[in-house]
Nucleic acid binder design. Structure first.
Lengths: 328, 328
DNA sequence: CTGAAAGCGCTTACAG
DNA sequence: CTGAAAGCGCTTACAG
């Protein structure tokens, strides 16, 4: 910057104003010619502002910390892509950390992010009890939740309750009366809401639905399905609140000597790219993962701008495939 | 820091030395009592050093930029987890960016990282031609490659050539003489090496192997397999250089009215957690993805420390499952 | 329209 | 063992 100032024969403060100001500010700061000369030199010298100096001076880092259970979960990776994309459009940098859904790690990662002076945080790993979120709100740390909601804090989520209902309606339409739910982790609003949406509709039809919790991955779904299939008579349809758990369930059905999709229908959630490509294509509820990420980022930006946040709840859509064909 | 200095009745420079110096430096900088008092106040005041001030002063950001084709690819997400983990142990922060394997994006992301003053870069999206890597080396930007190698630059990879060979040996042992390869993108050393390792062993056995390039995802594998299955007679075994492509191939086999695993054996690569849980468990070559990430980070650290880098090539392992059972 | 000055929070030669 | 000073690269009130 000093080099530019010397080359253009002006003060660094003028350079700063021209390079960073709004058009109006630039007009007030320098004549058109001076401004052009400055921009010219900046380009010629391949000038890149030093973000550390800027942050030190402005006490604003333009950095956003993102916490996820784990990035190797496709759902969260896709949400993060949405966040990253929107952040770039807003001139913000982001960094992700895994918390593995462990409270101690969550806390440690939040502190780490804070010590890096992030302007705000996006939490994709909120737990139902909202302990950490409540604390952060009390400390006035700007943050939003994504994917999972908790404690009424600002969030960008899918309407998971409605999504569970879509599957219930589908199963009811197919005439399934012995059904079960693989419900995911008991601390995640995603699994809880999807399960509740499903169970409530079946209850209205006079049918109680057994549910079993599980990890959100294939191994978890496999184990949970094994347990459900040991019951006599076994369920004729299983709703897994996550595509990976559903794939595990498909495997368990096969291992039990039953035909997936025929003897036991299976539906998942999220409509990951895999669902359509499986040897037995998987019925799933599409949730707008990428969009959730961009909405979360934009929600955070509006909070940082001092506005009242309005949580977003996006619409799910049922995609029917061969894993839940008409019976008979 | 000033507050600590005032509370402890010393100069900020002494505080800095005590809080950041090695034990030896601390001993030289302050008496045991003074040092203890300073640490005491730091804890009491919940002092957190300002990384921006530190970076501005030291011209070292302790920041590492990571480029991947895309984070929603499980392979890369897992590698990144390894990077992230190792980085935390070294007191480094990392951030990832997607390049979608597009040269223009790669270039733009590298410049972005540089403008954020990263100390170094890890590239998971190197192309065979090594254009960008060559340029970076010419500019003396510290970097390492991960997953893919190119142009002889420092890298942490899997021995993909050997991995392809493992599958060839397996197929030969099973007596397959009509085989084919779904080879992935033509610009990635992973797919190229895996294919070459396979093809070379078959050639030694006097058999030429048809190969077809594809995207690294299920859709790409599906399309490529369709093409291979149109040939008459169709191959009895297909090696896809990636588990997701293999899953797509499995679907294509089924769609062609053939029995996957019986009429057409299918093997993948990476041994992602999905492979074991598929309805038809997938034979795959396990590549140490997480470890590749940690090795890459450590390689970069050693480069930043001025040492001569030695590229790492990690061992693959064949995991046989039902998708490639003995014939007959 | 433009400049000079102060200061963000650190580190590190220099001096004692 | 400890302090005083300079400076990293910016921004922004203050002054003209």
């Amino acid at each position: 910057m000093r080099t530019i100032a010397e080359s253009a024969g002006v003060d660094v403060s003028t350079v700063s104003r021209v390079l960073n100001g709004s058009p109006a500010e630039v007009a007030r700061a320098a004549s058109r010619e001076t401004a052009d000369a400055i921009r010219d030199w900046a380009a010629r010298l391949d000038y890149r502002p030093n973000p550390h100096a800027k942050s030190l001076r402005t006490a604003r880092s333009n950095l956003i910390g993102v916490l996820v259970p784990r990035l190797s979960d496709l759902t969260l990776a896709t949400i993060y892509e949405g966040i990253e994309d929107a952040a770039a459009r807003h001139g913000l940098a982001t960094f992700v950390m895994n918390s593995y859904d462990r409270p101690a790690e969550q806390r440690a990662r939040v502190e780490l992010a804070l010590s890096r002076r992030v302007d705000g945080l996006i939490l994709g790993d909120a737990h139902e009890d909202a302990r950490l979120a409540d604390e952060m709100a009390a400390r006035k740390v700007p943050f939003v939740l994504v994917s999972r909601h908790a404690g009424g804090h600002p969030s960008a989520t899918c309407d998971d309750y409605r999504g569970g209902g879509l599957v219930a309606e589908h199963f009811l339409r197919l005439g399934h009366s012995r059904v079960a739910v693989i419900a995911g982790e008991p601390f995640a609003s995603t699994g809880l809401d999807r399960t509740a949406g499903f169970v409530d509709l079946y209850r209205k039809a006079g049918i109680e639905v057994p549910t079993v919790h599980s990890a959100f991955d294939t191994a978890g779904g496999h184990k949970a399905a094994e347990e459900l299939l040991r019951r006599r008579p076994h369920p004729t349809a299983i709703f897994a609140v996550n595509d990976f758990a559903a794939i595990g369930a498909l495997g368990a059905v096969r291992d039990a000597g039953l035909r997936p999709g025929e003897d036991v229908a299976v539906a998942g959630f999220n409509d990951t790219p895999l669902a359509a490509e499986l040897p037995l294509p998987l019925t799933s509820v599409r949730s707008p993962m990428r969009e959730m990420g961009t909405r979360a980022l934009e929600l955070l930006v509006s909070i940082l701008g001092g506005q009242q946040p309005v949580s977003e709840r996006l619409d799910p859509e049922l995609i029917v495939r061969a894993s839940t064909l008409p019976r008979g």
